[in-house]
């Protein structure tokens, strides 16, 4: 990207990319690719430094806004899969459905064009199993505190429970629990928001 004309092409493609907003990743990439190919093809008849010629090419292509409008206006016709609606729920709570509900959610997520790669990675990694994981964690914590509770008969049972419930520092345990609870909820909300915008 050294010459003025090359920069002109890059600017045009960047403006188009900015206009494409919520267009799903694969569709967006292909459109940008094809417009770039079109410009390369059209420029073959020109001197590489011919700025006026390049302006004519970009003018014939039309405003990036008009191209984006055609692409985004067409988006509903791509008909997002109906299963998209349940994906955020399955990713969040699917773990409780025989453990496979989460897996089903993840498969539906990856097979839908509604979400981009980064959404899919995020939902898969934060947190595998969704809310099942913190519930399992809580179960283990509860079991541990129950043990210490039985060791202290009389009034101060409650205080013994809370201090000995977690072997590792209590704040750390609470933080882990918070992250594993809030993480999947925030991710599910994010997935749902992306779905509604698409």
């Amino acid at each position: 990207m050294s010459t003025r004309t090359d920069r002109g092409v890059a600017d045009y493609l960047e403006r188009l990319d900015d206009c494409l907003g919520t267009l799903p990743g694969a569709t967006r990439r292909q459109l940008l690719e094809e417009i770039a190919e079109h410009i390369v093809e059209a420029r073959q008849a020109l001197d590489p430094e011919d700025e006026v010629g390049l302006l004519a090419i970009l003018d014939a292509l039309g405003d990036p806004e008009a191209i984006a409008e055609e692409a985004l206006g067409a988006a509903p016709i791509t008909a997002a899969p109906r299963s998209d609606v349940v994906v955020p729920w399955l990713v969040l709570l699917g773990g409780f459905v025989f453990g496979v509900g989460w897996l089903v959610g993840i498969i539906l997520l990856w097979s839908s064009a509604t979400w981009r790669l980064r959404d899919k990675l995020l939902a898969t990694l934060v947190v595998p199993g969704g809310l099942l994981l913190p519930v399992l964690l809580l179960g283990m914590g509860g079991a541990a505190s129950a043990c210490t509770g039985s060791g202290g008969p009389g009034l101060p049972t409650v205080t013994h429970c809370s201090t000995h419930g977690f072997v590792l520092p209590l704040p750390l345990g609470i933080a882990a629990l918070l992250v594993t609870v809030l993480g999947p909820i925030l991710v599910a909300v994010h997935l749902d928001r992306v779905r509604r915008r698409a």
Partner: peptide, 15 residues
């Protein structure tokens, strides 16, 4: 509207 709008249209036909 312009040459560029043909590409989203082609994408739709392909889908």
């Amino acid at each position: 509207a312009g040459e560029g709008t043909v590409y989203p249209l082609l994408a739709r036909l392909r889908r």
